[in-house]
Amino acid sequence: MAKLGLNLGFLLFQIFNFAVLCILLYAWAYKPILKMLDNRKQKIAQGLEDARIASEARANAEQDAAKILAEAQTKANQVVRESTDRAETAALEIRAAAEAEATKEREAALAEVQDERDRMLGDLRSQIAALAIAAAQKLVGESLDEKRQHTLIDEFFSGVRAGKVEVLEGTTISGASAEVTSALPLSSGEMTSVKNDILSKVGSQATVSFRVDPSILGGLVIRVGGKVLDASVAGQLESMRQSIS
């Protein structure tokens, strides 16, 4: 070693010092640095994991929020639709009720007018009878059987002779309902005779209604089962007009 110019003792001392320095650096510097780097690495990894979890949580929160908003919108639309339907239904019910009430009032007013007209026509019937009897007496120049004259006038307007409806004699009719039209209101006795005569032909389960139409002038028009029996004065005049034209 001396030939090489090296001092063995000094070299060993330097090697010892270097070894001690390495040990000290490893113990006091390298290990803490490695530990610090490892901790830093773990913190970075943890931060990345936390960021990933936060990102997923935010994405899930956004999805949940979108779902909640969609459900809320659907429910709101349903509430609006149901409210609209209820409002429309209520409006239709109110309108139907108003129309029904208006129809009821109109029908009641019409029935009242009809009753008043029939009452006036009923009063007119007795006046017509009195005028007809007076005219006949003046024409023949002597008193006539007033009872017989009343009977003839009643038969003229009611179409009933001896308790029988003349237009029904010798006819066959059928149906569930019948409508009887006269020029002037019939008396209760005349209505009973007409109704009984009709029911004897069509059956007791049928319904019979009466109406007044001054335009037929006299006699009766009976509609039953799609069949029309016209024994009115207006009908007879029309038949005569057609026969001579």
Rank of each mutant, 00 (worst) to 15 (best):
L11R: 06
F13N: 11
Q14P: 01
F16S: 10
F18N: 02
A19K: 03
C22F: 06
L24H: 05
L25Q: 02
A27F: 06
W28I: 07
K35Q: 14
L37P: 08
R40E: 14
K43V: 14
G47V: 08
G47S: 11
R52M: 07
A54K: 03
S55R: 09
A59S: 09
N60S: 07
E62S: 07
D64F: 03
I68G: 04
A70Q: 08
E71F: 09
E71Q: 11
Q78H: 03
V80S: 06
R81F: 04
S83F: 02
S83Q: 10
D85G: 04
D85P: 02
A91C: 06
E93I: 11
R95A: 13
A96V: 15
E101P: 05
T103S: 11
K104I: 13
A111G: 04
A111K: 15
E112W: 07
L121T: 12
G122Y: 15
G122N: 10
D123T: 15
D123S: 08
R125K: 13
R125V: 14
A135F: 14
A136T: 10
Q137N: 05
L139N: 09
S143G: 06
L144D: 01
L152H: 03
I153N: 03
V160T: 08
R161N: 10
G163L: 12
K164W: 12
G170V: 15
T172R: 11
T172S: 09
G175S: 13
E179K: 05
E179L: 04
E179W: 02
V180C: 00
T181L: 05
S182F: 01
P185H: 06
L186E: 03
M191W: 11
S193G: 05
V202K: 04
T207C: 02
S215H: 13
G219H: 03
V221C: 01
R223Q: 13
V224C: 08
V224H: 04
A231I: 09
V233A: 00
A234S: 11
Q236Y: 13
S243Y: 14
S245D: 12
S245N: 08
S245K: 08
